[in-house]
Amino acid sequence: MKSLFAFISLVYFFHPSIAQDDLLQELITEPIEAPVIATFKGTRVINGQSVETKPGGSLEFIFSHRFGRINEGAYTLWGLDDAFVRLGFEYGITDRLGVGLGRTSVDKSYDAYLRYKIVGQAAGKMPLTITTLGTMNYKTSPKQGDSTTPIDVEDRISYVAQVLVARKFNQNFSLQVNPLLVHRNTVDQAYENNTDFALGLAGRHKITRSLAITGEYIYRLNAKPNSPPDYIRYDAVGFGVDIETGGHVFQLVFTNSLGLIERAVVTETTGNFWDGDIHFGFNITRTFQLTRKR
């Protein structure tokens, strides 16, 4: 052993360049603990949520917009005459826990949610990122006086619970599966479920360092068949482009859903994507760092 050491020392002595490389090897024996970052670019993929949380102390402002149907043609300028808007905020309490608040013009509804990242994907340690999300939704439309039947507060409330599981397979490609349930307190029980189950599938593929294409499909698991025309609903489909510039993320999307919150996306998508009932829209986010380190 000692003679081996002497031999190695001699080799070092006469070959300083080998020695340096070897000295460097001494430093880099331990693998770097690397949590996987940016599985998705935003907290939304298209219409649905993503596994991403906001870093602790940062506030995201989300401005989402859907226009009318493109197949309405030139008369409505391919849907651009209509606008459906959600304004929202999401704040990262910690790197794992976030809270969100939003208001959507459709049904004049408010939504509040908590998001918690249970595990984060990390090289060599954890293959997946898993995030849970619980949302409460309150419709303020129609107004009490405008309705022919009395509406209680409970009738306006719905809930969404979901688990999002995602994996970033390489620098460019991420996939996500998210089972979710939507519970609406009051529905027309002849044609609608109080509780709907769905399975969301979403993916992202980066084209350049700042540009990615995304896709999303939300498959309804217990949709009621043979509904009358007014009650026909479809699975929400969407394709989009993510463009990132500094603190902004622009998501340009094409989707058959007007829903800007999960309740509407899962249970109220009235457009048939494959018939061309497609809405153009965008989600714009801006992130502000509110707390300073040091």
Binding site: L24, I32, G57, Q289, R294
Partner: peptide, 20 residues
């Protein structure tokens, strides 16, 4: 003894004021 010097920096450990 040889005046050799090496250093190694894990890139993901640079701490910025803004996490984004």
């Amino acid at each position: 003894t040889t005046n050799e010097i090496v250093f190694s920096v894990p890139n993901n450990q640079f701490q910025f004021e803004k996490k984004l």
